[in-house]
Structures are given as structure tokens and as C-alpha cells.
Nucleic acid binder design. Sequence first.
DNA 1: GGTGTGACAACAA
DNA 2: TTTGTTGCCACAC
Length: 114
Amino acid sequence: MLVLSSQQKIWKTVQLIPKGKVATYGQIADLAGLPGRARLVGKSLGNVPSELHVPWYRVLRSTGQIAFPAGTEQSRTQTGYLQQEGVAVFNNKVKLKSFQWQPDLGELLWKLEF
DNA sequence: GGTGTGACAACAA
DNA sequence: TTTGTTGCCACAC
């Protein structure tokens, strides 16, 4: 049985988000087997080693808003990456109804690797 | 091992 | 809609 720390699970889960789609913190926590731990997701993303290539910018708040205050360097960077993948960002927000990732059985199966 | 903290979420005004 | 409050719980001190 593969044993991963909560953070590692979170990173791996974030890496499952398809290009052009986004997920919320709560969604990632849930998929990572850590329901209700949305805040841990945020914290963990701040500790991601750059060599893991985790697409942290595909993770948004439950409202679709980018986690950083509008105008900050981080928020602009995130917006840039998202738009580069075809995700429309308006006023620091994304229309989840159109771009939120909907995991299919394939990903759920992958998840069993935990 | 008590306390404060956080890239959140849900709910009340 | 926007802002404030509360619940949440792993983590760093």
C-alpha cells in the first residue's frame, strides 16, 4: 500500500486536473481523501517544490474566484496561465459552471493508488 | 502539548 | 452582491 503524506496526496491530485479545466480547494481535498480539509490544500500548495510541476494555478475558491487579491503579481500570473489554457478569467474570477473539472471513473480508479 | 494560523467553505445579514 | 462570522483541522512554533 502506497503511503503518502496529506501534502503528497494533494499534489498528486492537483496534477490530475486536465489542462483547460479548474478545480476548487474543497474539491481537491475531497478527491485527495481529505474531506473538509480545503485549508490544508491551500497551505500545501504554498509548499510545493517547483520540480514537481504542480499546476497550482488550476485551483480556485469554491466561488470560482482566484485565491489571491486582484492586482497582485500572483493573481496576474495565475490568470495568465489559465487564459493560456483557454480558461476565461473575468475580474479575478472564473465561471465554474463552464470550466470546473468533472472527474470521471478513470481518475477515480487512479485515485485508488493511494 | 497549548496556541495561533491559513492560497477555504458555508451561512447570516 | 459584498462583508463578516464561524467551523474546520493539520501544521509550525
